[in-house]
Design a protein around this nucleic acid. Structure first.
Lengths: 232, 232
DNA sequence: CCGATCTTCATGACTTTTTCATGGTTTGTC
DNA sequence: GACAAACCATGAAAAAGTCATGAAGATCGG
């Protein structure tokens, strides 16, 4: 098992290559992105625990990307830049970054700051790939859910939805938050998507979908996953 | 209400004084300690959300104090030192510090780092999600209120109203203030909304809604929530 | 082309919010 | 005390919004 997943966001290929080597050598799983837009997409797919984010990037700048990512509390953000000015630091930190490192940086210091930041990520410590809750077994690796004897295959969106709900078990998760977590930041209003998928989710995990037990609706707010989640 | 409690740990009186002035000015509640031992004691009594910890101190050093404090995940630690070496930074961060600032530091940067670190402290996060008052339990996460055995579901407006009232418990909150807090700044005059919702609130939380005990009306002013609110 | 998945939409049942009319209460003035 | 004016509680109904559902179209990879 890796020490964690890290997403490197920088427009310079050379930096990405160096970072990848360094971090992989330190035991992390690494993916990279060239732009802020790409980073936001990979945030959903790769699910990093930490993002190393360059401030100076063409298109959506690092600060804008940082603000967009901050919506998810389950990821730490360390910003990087060549500008070692006080104003830059304050701006980055107030955009939601957890830490700030100026280039050129020393590798040991960067690694130490990464370790420190990862300690604070709530879920992290790598989410287990299989969990049990009540008579349910959800296998995120195999993309299946088993209730009693019957196993069902979960489609990608169903899986993402279920994952986010179980990660926030026993709290009412707002529509908007769910939509943004599963579909991306631009889809906060497409409540219909949610309803359609909640329906098919329930068909697969609930004993009788008319009176849901695990995925209940929280009227006017969103949905909620009920049950004591234990890794398995 | 303060922005948070901060404990300043440094053996030089002058630093403590400057820090206290700066942080108090930024809206924080401040206490200080001269030694690591004293800091550990104040950690229990003062319950700071964040500790500013000097590395160089006589007696128990800053690093040892940091390691001891790290047992409590509900406090952020920022270490300070004049030694701006890489080794010092790595050592501090691996001792459990969340961040590292070298002296002399810029005040805006320090404040920004404090804000960033406070975002990560789990508990603090201002208002608790569950409170008890008398025979009432209000769960803002689950959006329910429980009186004795009976639990009721709260609609969004009811919840917002109750939240604002409990946050200002034992004071008369004017109509206008309540309306603006719950409905928005343009609704200061819609006293009818208030009356309708106060009524349904009372139906859910009062034993007999005719003689309200928790939500009483403050004639000619507004409403008031009575009772000792304790987080739970 | 086929099948699986995702998106879009219309429908009726349901809940919350808004609006309003009624009658009772308090306050202040004569 | 009588009275008007402003306030308050209540119940009921209209308006607006939300939910589950089924089904049809769009998209994508093989």
């Amino acid at each position: 098992m890796s020490a964690g997943r890290i997403l490197v966001v920088d427009d310079e290929p050379q930096i990405r290559r160096i970072m990848r080597t360094t971090l992989t050598g330190a035991g992390y799983e690494v993916d990279d992105a060239k732009t802020g837009e790409e980073a936001l997409a990979k945030l959903r797919d790769f699910r990093p625990e930490l993002v190393l984010l360059d401030i100076n990037m063409p298109g959506m700048g690092g600060l804008a990307a940082c603000r967009a990512m901050r919506a998810d509390p389950n990821v730490a953000i360390i910003m990087l830049t060549v500008h070692n000015t006080e104003a830059a630091k304050v701006e980055a930190l107030d955009a939601g970054a957890d830490d700030f490192v100026s280039k050129p940086f020393s590798t040991p210091e960067l690694l130490a700051r990464i370790r420190a930041a990862l300690r604070r990520v709530p879920v992290s410590q790598s989410s287990p790939s299989r969990i049990r809750v009540g008579e349910l077994t959800i296998d995120f690796g195999a993309r299946t859910v088993t209730r009693g004897e019957t196993a069902s295959h979960l489609t990608p969106k169903e899986l993402d939805l279920l994952r986010y709900l179980t990660q926030h078990a026993n709290e009412a998760v707002p529509h908007r938050e769910l939509l943004q977590a599963v579909w991306g930041p631009d889809y906060g209003d497409q409540v219909d998507y949610l309803r359609a998928f909640i329906k098919s989710l329930r068909k697969k995990i609930e004993l009788n979908p008319d009176r849901p037990k695990y995925v209940t609706t929280e009227p006017w707010i969103g949905y909620r996953f009920n049950g004591a989640v234990e890794s398995s």
